[in-house]
Nucleic acid binder design. Sequence first.
DNA 1: TTAAATCATTACAATATGGTAACATAAAAA
DNA 2: TTTTTATGTTACCATATTGTAATGATTTAA
Lengths: 223, 223
Amino acid sequence: MKKTILIIEDEEDLLELLEYNLQKEGYETLGFLNTKNVEKCLQEESIDLLIVDRNLPGMEGSEFVQTLRQKGFSQAVIFVTAKNSDTHVEEGFLRGCDDYVTKPYNMKELLLRIKAILARTAPQSNSKLSYRDLVLDLEAHTLHVNTKEVELTKLEFDLLRTLIENKHSVLSREFLLEHVWKSDDFFQDKTVNVAINRLKAKIDPIREKEYIKSVWGVGYSLC
Amino acid sequence: MKKTILIIEDEEDLLELLEYNLQKEGYETLGFLNTKNVEKCLQEESIDLLIVDRNLPGMEGSEFVQTLRQKGFSQAVIFVTAKNSDTHVEEGFLRGCDDYVTKPYNMKELLLRIKAILARTAPQSNSKLSYRDLVLDLEAHTLHVNTKEVELTKLEFDLLRTLIENKHSVLSREFLLEHVWKSDDFFQDKTVNVAINRLKAKIDPIREKEYIKSVWGVGYSLC
DNA sequence: TTAAATCATTACAATATGGTAACATAAAAA
DNA sequence: TTTTTATGTTACCATATTGTAATGATTTAA
């Protein structure tokens, strides 16, 4: 399993260079030019480490990390920044980083520091399922549609989960009754229709994107 | 429980200074002037972290660490050394250190780096758990809500602790009965409802902040 | 093109679930 | 001992959820 690294760096050239080198090392990367949307991403994706510049537009990087820590995010953080005075470094650590690298930096060293930290930080296996812009967090029991959280009932959640787990098959009503309702002979086929309908309405209220298609005479599948 | 740090440093003045500062921070220290007897000590004592100079009489520090790693010792290691070139640093990490600090160093920064590494390698054995403005002191067995102390019973404490330890997951009543009550088949699900309710009333009597949410048909989680 | 079959949508009722208070019992403290 | 505290259980009510039936739309096939 690839480890995922999230980078917040407002200088686009630097961001690109970093992403290039990290990907070459075998990491997944997610680049951000500012702190906007980062928190959402942390909730939805399984991030192993953050690389954060301190001079960011809008918000100071270390303050941002401090608020993340207060909210309970415990992912590893490395500050990569031009703020290189003793007091800056101390401030950085007090706000919750795991390592502090000053610009200009040696890329090899940074990669080694990342490796060292990732070897220590416990692999948090937050299991997730996704399909297109739907992200199902099985532990938090949440659905995010294009980064926006959507509330689902248990039945709807189980239904969508089954659909995503079998995204390449058309699932018959019988199959769904067995796997989602756990009993195929107590309920009617129509029950599935209504449940699918309700699910559709929740994940795509204005019917702009077609997620679920019905296959005439067979059942339902993701499209 | 105090954390123990083993130091290998051949300059006696530096060793003393380091031990003095580490002890002031509340660590146990064990100083060595060379690598002799260090391995024996690692086997006998419970060492949390090693601070190692690279220029040592008899053996090069990073090579020594490399042999330790090969023998299966996995304690955290920080090199503190005058060998400060890029290639030296890279070599240090490749031989298995967790952090690399070059001489002359800033004592405050070193202490912070030690703390950051220990937070990852010797996790919360005696520390605190927190979520938003809730702080659970596992040693003192107390809860502070926004710095104000709130009395909890043992059950309530264990319940909140389990919730915070799994802050990103929805916990089923079954799971909670197993982990908090230690027996899932002797108690009923409703027992959890009532316990959660009592906990809610204690940490937020006027229901102004929502800490615990119930997920219909699934269980409870922090929100 | 038309009729039958299948599906979508809506409204409504039945059911399951959760919150709360009251009570009972056990454990701890006085 | 008595008194207090902690905690499990039960009952009752409010509400979220979900099955079903009714109705209208769509698709298929003769």
